[in-house]
Amino acid sequence: MVVNMEQCVMAESTVPLLNQRASPGTVALRSSASPDPAGHWEEPSFTVASKVRVVATVCLFLFACGSNWAVLASAARKGRKSPLRVLILSLSAADLLVTLVVMPLDTVWNITVQWYAGDAACKLLNFLKLFAMYSSSLVLVVISLDRQAAILHPFSFTSAGQRNRNMLAVAWAASAVLASPQLFLFHLQKASGLDFTQCVTMGSFQQHWQETLYNMFTFLTLYVMPLSAMVVCYSRILWEISRQMKEDRGLVRSNNDHFSKARMKTLRMTIVMVVSFIVCWTPYYLLGLWYWFRPEMLREIPEYVNHTLLLFGLLHTCSDPVVYGLYTPSFREDLYACWGRLGSGLTRHRLAHRPPSLSFLNVQDYGLTADLSVHGSVGSVTSNGTAVQTGF
């Protein structure tokens, strides 16, 4: 992940890999290597692969920003009291945080190549980046726990709202705590003999094993543990559904059991969201693991591989609102209503600024006034004059 795999190599050096052009969004740029036989250093540049990554990230940003704002507005509407509503609100907020922090930071950093924003921004933005990724993962865990309780303990529905709020508070607080080391690890470092400054963790660890331990801890808490919790929750859910279906009672008593069908539909939606998280982020995490155990792999894989896997991971912030829209009729109704209001507003705007039509001629004699009918082709004549209206 952008806050995981790259972080593990930023600590090594502010000097880029020798004779390897890479964008600052890649792990290669912010890592180091021993000098080549010729002893030449090549400063990183804004490569073609980096430019493609920037364009793709901007497209993802526009879609994720608009779609997650739409979900946030729809779920926040008054009168919708479903216990799942507050969970969807938090997931949309977490996805928006990733969209508004990770994507712009990655885009600008790729363009500028080095860091120009100062030491305070270096610390704060890297903290927010990791905080956003933690919140997205942990909110999905909370949703999984909520679905497990809804299926395994259906009669606890009345306390679900308070339970979800408590779990979300813990998830957001844990995200802040787990991301807080970034405030102390990241700092500015200037390359020796070069006009090149980078935001790195170099020098923050006294021993290499300490750095590896921190990276593995981040990997476990950011990906492995949340994924394990989701898998356990949905495995228990599917086992319970299978058991009750065999006993012909409980969850799906009949095709007309509206509550059960609604619950199963919500369950399918959350499962798809979790699967999307796994599919989008797993390849990039595996690449990070590969680097930790074999750092020289950076020279063996093409630059575009890292770019592609990161973009595929960021695609997860776009998939959540799409899945929510597919499984939530009220969200689609809100979109149609918003689109209708937008179309009506544009139509009124065009009519208000349209120049007078040449198909209607109003002839006014001296001080005589005419009150033209809005819908008819004949004007209403006032008592003090006449108006002649000719339609073509």
Rank of each mutant, 00 (worst) to 15 (best):
Arg236Trp: 14
Glu247Cys: 12
Tyr234Asp: 01
Met230Lys: 09
Val224Cys: 12
Ser228Asp: 02
Asn255Glu: 15
Ile237Phe: 09
Cys233Ala: 13
Met269Pro: 15
Ser228Trp: 08
Trp292Gly: 13
Tyr234Phe: 13
Val275Cys: 02
Met225Cys: 15
Arg263Thr: 11
Leu238Asp: 08
Thr282Gln: 06
Ser276Met: 03
Arg253Thr: 11
Met264Val: 14
Arg253Ile: 06
Met269Ile: 06
Gly288Thr: 10
Ser254His: 00
Ile271His: 02
Ser242Asn: 15
Leu298Thr: 05
Leu267Val: 08
Met245Cys: 08
Ile278Asp: 02
Val275Pro: 06
Leu251Asn: 05
Val224Gly: 07
Thr282Gly: 05
Tyr284Val: 11
Val275Leu: 12
Thr282Trp: 03
Val275Glu: 03
Met297Thr: 11
Lys261Asp: 07
Pro295Cys: 01
Leu287Val: 15
Asp248Asn: 14
Thr266Asp: 02
Gln244Pro: 12
Val232Asp: 01
Ser228Leu: 13
Ile241Thr: 13
Ala262Trp: 03
Glu247Gln: 10
Val231Gly: 02
Val279Arg: 11
Asn255Thr: 11
Val279His: 03
Asp257Phe: 06
Ser228Met: 12
Glu296Ser: 09
Ser260Gln: 09
Glu247Lys: 15
Arg294Lys: 08
Arg294Gly: 02
Ser260Lys: 04
Leu287Ser: 13
